[in-house]
Design a binder for these strands. Sequence first.
DNA 1: CAGTGGTCTAGACCACTTT
DNA 2: AAGTGGTCTAGACCACTGA
Lengths: 242, 242
Amino acid sequence: MRRSPNLTEQVRRHLKDQILREGFADGRIPPETELAADLGVSRTTIRDALGRLESEGAIYRRQGAGTFVNDAGLQIRSPLEEIWSYEEALEAHGYTPSVEIVALDTEPATPSLAESLSIASGDPVLVIGKVFREDGDPVVLAYNRIPEQLVQEPFTEDDCLAPIYDFLEAQCRRYLGYYLSDLVPVSAPRSVADQLQVRRGTALLSFDEIGYDRDNIAVLQATSYFRDDLLRFRLIRRQVES
Amino acid sequence: MRRSPNLTEQVRRHLKDQILREGFADGRIPPETELAADLGVSRTTIRDALGRLESEGAIYRRQGAGTFVNDAGLQIRSPLEEIWSYEEALEAHGYTPSVEIVALDTEPATPSLAESLSIASGDPVLVIGKVFREDGDPVVLAYNRIPEQLVQEPFTEDDCLAPIYDFLEAQCRRYLGYYLSDLVPVSAPRSVADQLQVRRGTALLSFDEIGYDRDNIAVLQATSYFRDDLLRFRLIRRQVES
DNA sequence: CAGTGGTCTAGACCACTTT
DNA sequence: AAGTGGTCTAGACCACTGA
């Protein structure tokens, strides 16, 4: 075991694999000291890895009693607190998605968009619209907006098929750090309903997100719509210590 | 500084307070070694506290450069990965809510509810329905379902006004550990639309949750509906290390 | 009372940014 | 080169569970 990713992450993946292969009898995970000795790392590293597994719902711990596999929590496919591409998310749900560009355009920034992206109102913004399908059924409709001044490299339509963070790296030399995301229920308007092949007025979940790079600069606005009948998000909410 | 809550949490709150009071010049947080010396704790404790602040969006860190306040992330009011009462959530959004019971009943468990709660189909379930209002405007409609066999203590309607985890502790001697929550967009049906005073068919966000106690036993099912125009959820989604 | 997870420390070394 | 955050270790002691 050596560098990249770090030891804690390697241990986390090792344990996660073993959990998914049901490699722990009775769902009981060995004591931390034993894991540390077996894997040749310190108990601190083991505890960090277990801490991540706990926060993603894969295990739970009871002081004095032990550490156990959490079957209910393992049902989470796409952890909301992480960034994933829609291809990844759909594959995690058992799909084999295809992607199609449905919009590729330059538009002037509206005042609110300009405010979000810290650019001037009316500045040109690249708009990339994509639909992700499973077996012909549209599951996700996503629009990404990037200030045109950030786009340094020329690109083809194929480049736009890639996950947006790959596009940001290749075309803008920016590295996506995090999204600030609003969860917004919408009643499908005409254009969205057509793309997702649902009736107008169908209730859809949407994400309204601003993407920030590693220097905490807004580089991206994204709006995505999901067919609730084909893709549902699940998360864990924990009691915090008082 | 002594026990309960633990040192890390005390440090986290101390730093969070100072951030909110804008006590750090230029949004720059002192080096970890300096914080450790100032507060008289180890650097590890400081790092744990900073790690939590980072994951909740209050700060960001850049290796080699420093730690900084994240103004955008501070806009998050009700972190989705935590459990809060709706009173708390609404207060965090600047409201001063009132609560009213709109349902208090015993019903037989449907097959799917029984499955979720690990009880027998048809077993009696206590249903508590509540509406949370701001200035007379309904903001949240919540239904909680608890297997009647768990309810050990007699209770009055007043007990039902309390947050459901308080009810679980007082009446069932159970301690809520976490929720497994589905995010579900719904087109408001008649009953919900009436309670929330919106038109039928309005798109609403709902949570469909199973609550587990500290021993990982399902003790509660909850469905909640939110007026998107009055209460919106925001979260941080981070790039994970590859 | 033995064994488990929970908290905290002190210190070493590395990777990266800034000057 | 100096200073910052990132990783990892070894070890001490505490709090709680369960036989």
